[in-house]
Design a protein around this nucleic acid. Structure first.
Lengths: 241, 241
DNA sequence: TCAAAAGTGTTCCTTCTACACCCATGT
DNA sequence: ACATGGGTGTAGAAGGAACACTTTTGA
C-alpha cells in the first residue's frame, strides 16, 4: 500500500462499508481479516480523495470489494467519538508482529497517520453473493462472508456500525428491495419472501406477505413458472419499469 | 476570530446546525447574517476540535448560539460532495469587501483553510424561542429567527440541509416531543397540538389528535386548568418521569 | 389419489377518520 | 341563556393477522 499520508486524501475521515450479502435464504456480511498475527477483523473501508464525493469514495470501496459496477449504497450514520482511533489496535498489532514491522521513517509517518482520531461515515449495501467475487486488499489475509448472527469480533466500534446498518436496512427494505438488484429479472413471490425473511430475521405468513408486497405496487405479474415440481406453478413477477 | 488553520481542529469538517425554534404556533429557523457587504446568510456551524466528539462539537455550537445548556440535538445526515467548498462564496465576499480585507500572510492562510473542500455533518435541534437569546458570532452582522416558509437565500447547500433536517424532524416528532423541552412543566392538549401543527405544517382534527397523543403513553393527566375564559377548563398534562 | 406448494377468500380485530354530541365555564 | 372551547363516544373505512379452503402440479 502506498503510504496514505502522502496521498491527496481528506484527513481523519474514512468511509466504512457494511456490505450485506444474500444467498440461500441467509443474510451475511463481508468482512476481511487482516494479514497479521493476531486475528484482526475490520469492515471494508477507504479514505476520501479530495476529488471524490463521499458517495463516490464509498462506491469505490464497494466496487473494489465486490466487483459490481452499479451498486446501490446508502449513507446511514456517522461515528465520531473523540476517542475513536486505531492506537490500541495498532499497538497490539505491532506487538504481535515485531518481526515483520521495522521502524522506518515511512512507517513512522504511516503510524502517525493511522493513529489519529478518525471519523467514520457509515455506508451499507446489499448484494447478491452469487454475483460477487470478494477481493482482498493488499493487507488482507482473507475476506469472507459471515452470517449476520455469527460475526467475528471486529476492531474499534465496527460491531456497532454493523448493528446500526442492519437496523437501517430493515427499516428501509420496502423502498429499497428493487434497488438492491438481488432478484433475477423474473422471480416468484417465494423468492421475494425469502429475501425479506433473511433480511428481517423473522418469518412472514405466506398469504399475507403476498398481499403486502402486491400493495407496494411495484410488481407486475407475468406468466406461470413450471418447475417440474409436483405442485401448483407459481406466477412470475418482475419490477415495474 | 483566531485563524482556524492554527488551531487543533479536524480539517475539512464542519458541523452544520439547523436550529429550529418554536413560538406562537410558528416554526422558525435561526440563521445568522454575515457582517460583510453582500447579504450572505449561512447556517450556524463550527469546526471539530481534536478533543471533542462530533456530538460535542455540535452541542457547543448550539449552546453558544442559544445559551441553552441541556439541549437535545440529533445528527441526521452528511453532505460531502467533492465540489462542496466556499470558494465561490468567499471570492464574491472578497470582491464586495475589498476595502476591509487586505492581503496578509494570516489572511492568506485563512483563505486557504476556508476554500478547501468541506464535509458537513448535519445536526438539528428544536428549542423554545422564548428561552433563547440568539448570539451573534464575531463575524455576524445579525442573527434572526426566520419563518420556515420564508428562508433567506443561504450559501452553499444550506437550503438543502434545512430541507433534510425538516424532513427528519417531522418523521421523528413523536419520539422526540418531550426531549425538545418545548412545553412548560404542565400544559394542555391544545398546546401540544399547536406544536405538532407548527412542526408538521398541517392541521389535525382536535378529537383524534387527543387520542393519538394519549396512545403514545408518555403523558399523565393532572387537574384541570381554570383560565378564566368562558369555556370548559381543559386538563393539564405532564410528561411521565 | 396424494402430497406439496400456491392462490383466493373470509373472519376477526385493531387502528384511523370524521363527526355528532354533550359538558363546563364565565359573561 | 349562550357562545366558546374541551371531552367522549361512535359509525364507517381501512388495514393487518390468522387461517380455512381451493387449485394446480407431477409422481
Amino acid at each position: 500500500m502506498i503510504n496514505p499520508s502522502k496521498q491527496n486524501l481528506i484527513q481523519q475521515i474514512t468511509v466504512d462499508c457494511v456490505i450485506f450479502g444474500y444467498e440461500n435464504q441467509k443474510l451475511k456480511v463481508l468482512i476481511p481479516k487482516i494479514n497479521f498475527k493476531g486475528d484482526f477483523w475490520a469492515l471494508p473501508s477507504g479514505f476520501v480523495s479530495q476529488e471524490d464525493d463521499i458517495d463516490a469514495a464509498a462506491r469505490k470501496v464497494l466496487q473494489f470489494r465486490t466487483g459490481i459496477e452499479d451498486i446501490y449504497l446508502e449513507q446511514f450514520s456517522v461515528f465520531g467519538k473523540a476517542s475513536r482511533n486505531h492506537t490500541a489496535f495498532l499497538d497490539k498489532l505491532l506487538e504481535l508482529n515485531e518481526d515483520r514491522l521495522k521502524e522506518s521513517e515511512n512507517n513512522r509517518e504511516e503510524y502517525l497517520w493511522f493513529t489519529k482520531r478518525f471519523i467514520a461515515i457509515g455506508y451499507y449495501a446489499l448484494v447478491d453473493i452469487g454475483k460477487v467475487n470478494p477481493q482482498k486488499s493488499a493487507i488482507d489475509q482473507s475476506i469472507e462472508w459471515h452470517d449476520i448472527n455469527e460475526l467475528p469480533t471486529m476492531i474499534l466500534d465496527h460491531q456497532e456500525i454493523v448493528e446500526v446498518a442492519l437496523h437501517t436496512l430493515r427499516s428501509h427494505i420496502d423502498e429499497k428491495i428493487n434497488a438492491f438488484n438481488l432478484l433475477p429479472e423474473t422471480f416468484t413471490m417465494r423468492e421475494v419472501q425469502d429475501v425479506y425473511e433473511a433480511v428481517c430475521g423473522r418469518t412472514f405468513v405466506r398469504t399475507n406477505f403476498q398481499k403486502m408486497i402486491l400493495e407496494l405496487n411495484v410488481l407486475e405479474r407475468l406468466e406461470k413458472k413450471y418447475t417440474g415440481a409436483a405442485n401448483k406453478a407459481p406466477y412470475l413477477y418482475r419490477f415495474k419499469k
